[in-house]
Structures are given as structure tokens and as C-alpha cells.
Computed example of a mutant assay.
Amino acid sequence: MKRQDKTKKKKNWLKIIVITLLIFLVAGGAYAYSIYHSLTKAVETMHTPIENRPISDKRQNEIAYTNQEPFSVLLLGVDEREGDSGRSDTIIALTVNPETNSVKMLSIPRDTRTDIIGKNKVDKINHAYAFGGVKMSMDTVENFIDIPLDYYVKINMEGFKDIVDSIGGVEVNNDLDFSSEGDHFPIGKIKLNGAEALNFSRMRYEDPRGDFGRQYRQREIIQGIINKGASFATLTNYSTIFDTLSKNIETNLTFSQMNDIQKNYRAAAKNVEQIEIKSTGKKIDGIYYGIVSNEEKQRIHDELKVHLELK
């Protein structure tokens, strides 16, 4: 029973994925050569292109970063264990628009029922990773929200605590007094290490606001990571940070692309908006699914399409 509870609590790790923004927004060419060299080496380790996946048919041309064109990224938090291909327990579609200086972050519940592209079946959306890895996940999510997904970033969820600890912990503003897994979280501004940040962000059942409360805490972790990562004090530990990132992140973004993003899109990180999907829980053949209506999918599609400035 304890193991099942632990597995349940590993889902929806929104906060750890946004550590990727540190690469986009903090790592600039203005730093010393030693930092630049360490970052280059880390990104080379992280770079994992997807074979046989051309530009999305939902996009006509490749993105020109120098023209500051909007782009999208699929962020996946994956729990991979020995002897198991793993499932993407966190799925986030992130769109970035430099014209409006804004980022929209759509968190897709793991139980969402949808077509699994390339498998010819309907299943939970997080099963796409188990069936076909990153490529099938991208194809499936792209079909579900009907917008192009230009890049992906996959994070090993087991490495979350190391990532938070590598930046010296995070500071958050807590609005609910509660305890979880032996840690007590009083109301007010508190500093958390990796293990505490995990417990803080995953608690849901004791919060009267349910998922809304958990999402608030996740946003606090995100903001704490970005704030800490952008500080000079954190960069004195850059070697440990980059080493931790390289061990826990995979992406098809190249160093050159990340550098262009840092130069041309940095201001967008100041305005991050989280978008929620409304779904209805339903059991089909004894299995729980989240059912998203066509109207809700259209609403999400329209909002992200406008943000990406797609015709």
C-alpha cells in the first residue's frame, strides 16, 4: 500500500520540468569561458535528436529565432525504472511568444483518454511514451491539442531532488499550513531543499482546493527555481548544476538553438501563464480515464494557436 501511495505521488511534477528554462534564460554568452565551456559540454550530453520525425505538418517552415517567431516545446517528466520502459507522468505543452513576452504552459493530465498515434488504439495519453517513447508522445500530444510541437525536453523524475539541491534549494511563499511525509510546511516564506520541495509540491489530498492548491504550490516551486537560477550566487555552483542537468535531461534542442532562444526570447520568461484542461472522470471497462470534451479541446487549441500566431 505504501508503495502504491508513493507511485501516485510522483505524477504531475510540473515544477521540475521548468528547470529547463534555466538553460534557455540563464545560460548566456556573456559569462566567463569556463561557464560557457561547461554548459556546452552539458548540452552536448543532453542533445538527443528524434529519428524520422520531420517538421510538423502543422507548421509550414522551420522557426527563425532571429525573427523572434513563436515556438513550442513538449515537456515530459518520465519515471523510468529498471525493466520498465516508463510512462510520462508529467506532460506539458509550452508555447513561447516573444512579441507578447509571454509563455503559456498547458498541463495535460496523465489519465486523459485520447488516440495514441502510431499504435492505432485509444488509451491514456501517458501510455504513449511506454508504447513508443518521445516520438509517439509528441505525435499523440500534437494530435490531441492540434498544434505543432517543435521540440521536446524529457526529464528523469528520479533526479528532481538533485536538481533542486544543485541550485542550493528554493524559496517559496506557502499559503497553507500542512505536513507531508514527515515535513511540516508553515504559512509564509519558507526555504526548501530537494526532498522538501518534492513533498511540498506533490501534496494534494489534504488540501481543500485539491488540484488547484497543488498547482499553486507547483507554480511557487517553478518561480523559486527560476529566481534562484537567475542569481549570480547560484552560478558560482554552475559546474554542479550543469552536471546534474546533463544527467537528468534529454532534448532535441541544440546548443546553438538554445543560445538563440536565450538571446531573442529571454523577456518572455517574466510572464508565465498556466492553462488548465477541464475533464470529466469516467470508468471504461473498469479503468479510470479523464474525458475531455471536443469543445474543451477546441478552446485549448484556439488559445495556443493564437499564442503561436498560426494562420
Rank of each mutant, 00 (worst) to 15 (best):
Q223T: 10
Y129G: 03
K124L: 11
A130R: 07
I225F: 06
K121S: 14
D139S: 08
L149D: 00
F232H: 11
M157Q: 02
K121A: 15
A195L: 11
K154P: 02
D123W: 07
M138W: 10
F178V: 01
D146I: 04
Y129D: 09
I222C: 08
G168T: 07
P186R: 09
Y205L: 10
N173G: 07
I222A: 08
Y129V: 08
F144R: 04
R113K: 13
S107N: 13
P109L: 10
N237P: 07
D150F: 02
G224K: 00
Y129A: 07
H184V: 12
N173Y: 12
V122K: 15
G224S: 00
Q218T: 00
I221M: 07
Y238I: 13
I225Y: 02
G194R: 05
G133A: 06
I225C: 09
D146Q: 13
I222Q: 04
G169H: 07
L192I: 05
N120A: 14
L149S: 00
F185E: 00
I167D: 08
H127R: 11
I147Y: 02
T236K: 12
G213P: 03
D123E: 11
S166I: 02
E142D: 07
I155D: 02
N174F: 09
N156T: 06
D123V: 06
T140Y: 05
I116T: 03
Y151T: 05
D115C: 09
R209K: 10
D183W: 14
L192C: 03
G188L: 12
G210A: 01
D115K: 13
N126M: 12
L235P: 01
I187C: 09
R219W: 09
G133W: 08
F212V: 10
G132I: 09
N237A: 01
T234F: 05
R219G: 14
I155N: 03
Y151L: 10
V122G: 09
F232A: 15
K154D: 03
R113Q: 11
A130I: 08
L106W: 00
Y152W: 05
T100N: 12
S180E: 15
K161A: 15
Y152V: 01
H127A: 15
E220S: 03
N199G: 14
P208I: 04
N193W: 03
V170T: 05
E99V: 13
K228T: 13
I187A: 09
S179Y: 13
V172W: 01
G188T: 10
L192P: 00
G224D: 01
F160V: 08
N173L: 14
T114E: 06
N101D: 14
G168C: 06
D111K: 08
E220Q: 13
I108V: 11
V134D: 00
D139K: 12
F178M: 04
K121T: 15
S201I: 03
D211F: 00
A197S: 15
A195E: 14
A128Q: 08
S179A: 15
F232S: 13
F200D: 00
L235M: 12
I225R: 04
S231C: 07
D115E: 14
L176N: 02
S180Y: 15
V141I: 08
D165L: 04
N143T: 10
G194A: 08
T112S: 13
G194C: 07
S179N: 14
